[in-house]
Every structure is written in C-alpha cells, then in structure tokens.
Computed example of a mutant assay.
Amino acid sequence: MTALGFLYPGHSAEDDYPRIEQLLGSDIRVDLVHTDIGEDAHRVDALREMGSAERLAEGVGALRLSGAEAVVWACTSGSFVRGWAGAQEQVRALARTAGMPASSTSFAFVHAVQEIGARRVAVGATYPDDVTALFVDFLRAGGVEVVAARSAGIVTAAEVATWGEAETLTLAREADAPEAEAVLLPDTALHTATHIPTLEKDLGKPVLTANQVSVWEALRLTGRRVNAPSLGSLFTREPIVQV
C-alpha cells in the first residue's frame, strides 16, 4: 500500500480525490487534509496568504499520522503566484516541516507536460486575467511554451466548484489552439476527475487537469506508476521523466 498525502485548500472539488483513488484501481491510498483557505479570492495577495508556510504546516501533522509517504500542496494558484523561486522555497519548507518528499500542483503541471512529451501547450484557466498570466509565466520559467491562454475571470473557488462537464469542455475548447500539443486546466477547485476521457476525445489531444496532475505528482514522488486509462493520457504513456 502506497499512501499519498495532499493539503487541499477549503472545500471545492475535493471529492475528485476519492474518485481518482477508485479510478487508479491499485494499492494506492489518497489521504487529504483541508487547509484554512482564508479569503476565497483569486487575487494575488489572498493567494499568497493561502499558501503561507503557517497555513500549510497546520495540516502536516495529520498527514504524518496517516502514514503518507509524500505530500503535494494541491493548489495551483497558491503556489505559482510566488513565482518559480518562491514556489520552490514553499515546497522546500513543506518538505522540511513534513519530513517527506513534497511538491505542489504548479510543479506537477511542469513535470506532467514533460512526461507526455509536449512542447507547446494551451491554458484554459478559471482565473482572472492577471492570475492566468502568472501561471503562464510560471510554465515558461519551467521551460514550457504556452501558445494560447484563456481566462474565465472567476474570482472564487466556490463558483468554480459549481461547474460541470459542459462548462469545463467549453473552457477547454476556447483555450485550445491548433499548434498546442496539450491543454492545461489549472484549478484544483474545478471538478475534472470523471471528465478527462471526454475532454481528450473532444480535443483530440492530452488534457492535463489540476487534481489529476496532483495525484500523478504524488505517485512520481513515491516512485510509483499506475496505468489508469480513465485518467487520461498522462496515466497511460511510457515514462519520459525519470523519477
């Protein structure tokens, strides 16, 4: 049994995680601890505070007791708003506090893009324009070429959590570009666990979503690979990134 730990801000699309655990169909346990979201706002100052070391440290004890072997800060915007160097320091501090390997959803996207061998991507973000731009900057700092980006302009995670497959598919279609080799949907407040096959079939290319890549990243940290076609191309390809 491999136990994966996640720190998840507030309550939005956390039910994606038990769904993903079921879809993995293996000896994988997903343990999720909620962190205090503070102000629910896709605004840079609020997002920086959401991912503060103090807030993350509060959830680490419960994950250690669960037997988690690695921890992922399952919040994309709460990491990339700090920039590449700031997000690295956030993860290093989390690893020191937790006493286990650590990462975040932002880094998971960079590693997942490398894993599927994509060079150019499109981004479909639920965020306002300024926050989306920071995610694009983060990806570029990680060596990912972003050829198109679309912002839905949603301010709160609570509103994002109300979206279903239709709204998510519309965003992915609007974000896509012919030259993009994959489409990224970077909000962990967005329910996507059961939509990925539909998204990939419609767009005809890999689709990477926040909760999907977060779980994949935790598996990567523990040296595990699981073949799970219902979770999309990311979970079916031969490894490109070396663990």
Rank of each mutant, 00 (worst) to 15 (best):
F235Q: 04
A148S: 11
A68F: 05
V123A: 07
R43C: 00
V155P: 05
Y8R: 07
L171E: 05
A118H: 05
A175T: 05
N227F: 12
L32G: 11
G204D: 06
E238V: 00
R55M: 02
A93W: 07
G78K: 01
I154M: 14
G10W: 10
F109L: 09
F235K: 00
H34I: 09
G51C: 03
Q90S: 08
V207K: 12
A210H: 03
T105M: 14
G142F: 07
A218E: 08
V131M: 01
V113S: 07
E238A: 15
N211M: 08
L185Q: 06
R119H: 13
G153V: 04
I20A: 02
E181Q: 15
A175R: 04
A166G: 10
N211S: 10
T156I: 11
R119G: 13
Q90E: 03
T209V: 13
V136C: 09
A122M: 03
R173F: 04
L23F: 10
K201I: 00
E165N: 12
N227V: 00
T126E: 14
E54A: 09
V72S: 04
T105S: 08
E217R: 07
G10A: 06
T76G: 09
R55Y: 09
L171I: 00
F6N: 10
I28C: 06
E115I: 11
A148T: 05
H34C: 14
W216L: 03
A158E: 13
V91S: 11
L171S: 02
I196W: 00
V183S: 15
A177S: 10
A182Y: 03
G25C: 07
L219M: 07
L23S: 15
A13N: 08
D187Q: 02
S106Q: 04
D129A: 15
D176S: 14
G124P: 13
A141G: 02
L24Q: 09
R119M: 08
H195M: 11
Q114P: 10
E49Q: 13
Q22W: 14
E58V: 01
A149Y: 08
S103I: 03
T2Q: 14
A141M: 07
F80W: 13
G143C: 02
P186A: 12
D202S: 15
T168K: 14
A41S: 12
R150K: 10
H42S: 07
A3F: 00
L199S: 05
V226R: 08
A70V: 04
T156V: 13
R29Q: 13
A177E: 09
T209N: 07
A3I: 00
Q242Y: 09
Q88G: 12
A148W: 06
E217K: 03
V136F: 11
A118P: 02
E39V: 15
L7R: 06
F109R: 10
R29S: 14
Q242P: 00
A175G: 10
P18I: 09
T35S: 06
F135E: 15
A93L: 15
V144W: 08
A53T: 00
E89H: 06
L7D: 05
T192G: 02
M50S: 05
L65G: 09
L65A: 13
A133C: 13
